[in-house]
Each structure stands twice: as C-alpha cells, then as structure tokens.
C-alpha cells in the first residue's frame, strides 16, 4: 500500500491487512495529531488498510 505522509512524501508498505493506527505507530505519528483518508475517504484510525490502498495522513496540529 502507498502511504502519503504529512510532509507529502510517499512510502510503500508491503504487509497484510492491519489497523491504520498500527501504520501510524510505525512512522512515529501520534493519532491524536492527525486525520486519515483511505483511498480519498476520511476514515477513523481504527479502520483497516490493506494491499492496494492509498493512505493519506493529514496533520491537524499546525503552528501559526
């Protein structure tokens, strides 16, 4: 699956189905500070992601 990080860089993750929260932990991201889309739709971080998905992580905590 493809992960789009808050800085817009992308990563490929080859793994079986897993909760998005687990993916966030792998990238050291606190779920409280972000929201997530799966294939363009907003989903809770407890939703699952699997091969072929595009997961986009949007940071909500923003300075300024």
């Amino acid at each position: 699956m493809q992960i789009i990080l808050p800085d817009r860089s992308t990563r490929q993750l080859d793994c079986g189905p897993l909760p998005i929260e687990e993916i966030l932990h792998r990238f050291g991201i606190n779920p409280v500070s972000i929201i997530v889309t799966r294939n363009g739709r907003l989903v809770p971080e407890t939703a699952c992601a699997e091969e072929g998905d595009e997961i986009r992580i949007i940071r909500v905590a923003h300075g300024g």
């Binding site: 799966r38 294939n39 363009g40 739709r41 989903v43 809770p44 407890t46 939703a47 699952c48 699997e50």
Partner: peptide, 8 residues
C-alpha cells in the same frame, strides 16, 4: 465514493 466492506 463506493461503500467499502471494511467501513466502520
């Protein structure tokens, strides 16, 4: 978008 079977 189409519904997803994994939707909560």
């Amino acid at each position: 978008p189409a519904p997803d079977r994994r939707d909560i």
